[in-house]
């Protein structure tokens, strides 16, 4: 493993801004993995760091192919994470809205350009992504429908779900979108957490990446990776949102990946002054909880749960 600085900006008051990469193997640019881009993506940097540890161990045992290059970048934004700020410290801009970047532009455009120039030629790209709403997801691979998405490859992760999403205008400046446009097979991996650490979720995503590496022939014979399992593929529009009509304190009764029956009470809202129930949230159909809101307070109109109808084929390691 080679540890290297991929991009750097000198700072007057703080230590220099550095993006560090961990490179395994040399030769064909097989896979790049990007962790946190925002300062609160602790689960994403954690998962990436654990992936580096696993790859280092595999490399030490001679189980990674030397002619296949893997680059892991745990954080694109240490400056924000170190001060617990979600976006760029000085101007609050979002690096994941700056791709493909501009090397003569503003600071976060330069960061995006500096990194993208080094990762755009990889055959496969993975980003540990987060959602702007606080909540937990079933582990899944998410891809934008740009016409370049490669669903068959996404199955190699063996995660329970593959979600396809029609890009919205603001998606066109994300890393995932631009990777696809530059002909990288781009996958966003979502897990159960963002600003907390969830060991189980991290482990499942890393196992998924190892399955992917095995399928792609980047792992040598003898490396232990579970065989790929069947994933259910659907578009995000197939998810049914159970929305709150009122605002209050949320008491959830079910978590993600739980099967629920039509009419089942999923959770309820309490009045913040009197503690009484002001709203109950029921499952409108038989299905599986795919997303669950995770903050104590809920606003009106919030998608507190998102359900996926019907049986799921996956019986994973839970």
């Amino acid at each position: 493993m080679e540890k290297e600085i991929l991009f750097q900006i000198p700072s007057l008051y703080r230590d220099d801004f550095r993006i560090r990469g961990y490179r395994f193997g040399q030769g064909k640019k097989a896979l790049c993995v990007v962790g946190s881009m925002r300062g609160n993506e602790y689960q994403q940097i954690y998962t990436c760091s654990q992936l580096v540890a696993r790859l280092k161990e595999l490399e030490g045992r001679g189980l990674l192919k030397e002619d296949q290059e893997i680059l892991v970048i745990p954080s694109l934004n240490p400056s924000s994470m170190n001060i617990e700020k979600r976006f760029w410290p000085t101007d609050n801009s979002d690096i994941n809205r700056m791709f493909p970047g501009y090397s003569l532009g503003e600071t976060t455009q330069r960061i995006a350009a500096g990194v993208f120039g080094q990762i755009k030629d990889f055959e496969n790209g993975i980003q540990f992504a987060s959602f702007y709403m606080p909540g937990k997801f079933s582990p899944h691979v998410r891809m934008m429908k740009t016409g370049y998405e490669n669903v068959e490859k996404a199955r190699e992760f063996g995660l329970p779900y593959i979600v396809l999403r029609v890009p919205k205008p603001y998606d066109t400046t994300t890393l995932n979108y631009n990777w696809q446009i530059w002909e990288t097979n781009a996958f966003s991996l979502y897990g159960a957490a963002t600003d907390t650490i969830d060991e189980e979720s991290a482990r499942r995503l890393i196992d998924g990446i190892l399955r992917f590496l095995a399928s792609e022939g980047i792992l040598k014979e003898g490396a232990q990776a579970d065989p790929p399992r069947e994933s259910r593929v659907f578009t995000d529009r197939e998810l049914l949102a159970v929305r709150s009509r009122k605002s209050g304190i949320l008491k959830s009764l079910v978590g993600v990946e739980v099967k629920v029956a039509q009419g089942q009470l999923l959770g309820y809202l309490l009045d913040t002054g009197e503690g009484r129930r002001i709203e109950e949230l029921y499952a409108p159909l038989d299905g599986t909880v795919f997303f669950a809101h995770s903050k104590p307070l809920v606003y009106a109109n919030t998608a507190v749960f998102k359900l996926l109808a019907g049986e799921e084929p996956f019986r994973g390691e839970r």
Binding site: M133, Y170, N301
Partner: peptide
């Protein structure tokens, strides 16, 4: 600058959705 609680730029949420989240609504 953005919508407090969401850290979202409101001027990237239009045209919104009546049945959507608070910001979209």
């Amino acid at each position: 600058r953005g919508i407090p609680g969401f850290d979202l730029d409101m001027n990237r949420t239009f045209p919104g959705a009546m049945e959507g989240s608070l910001t979209e609504h």
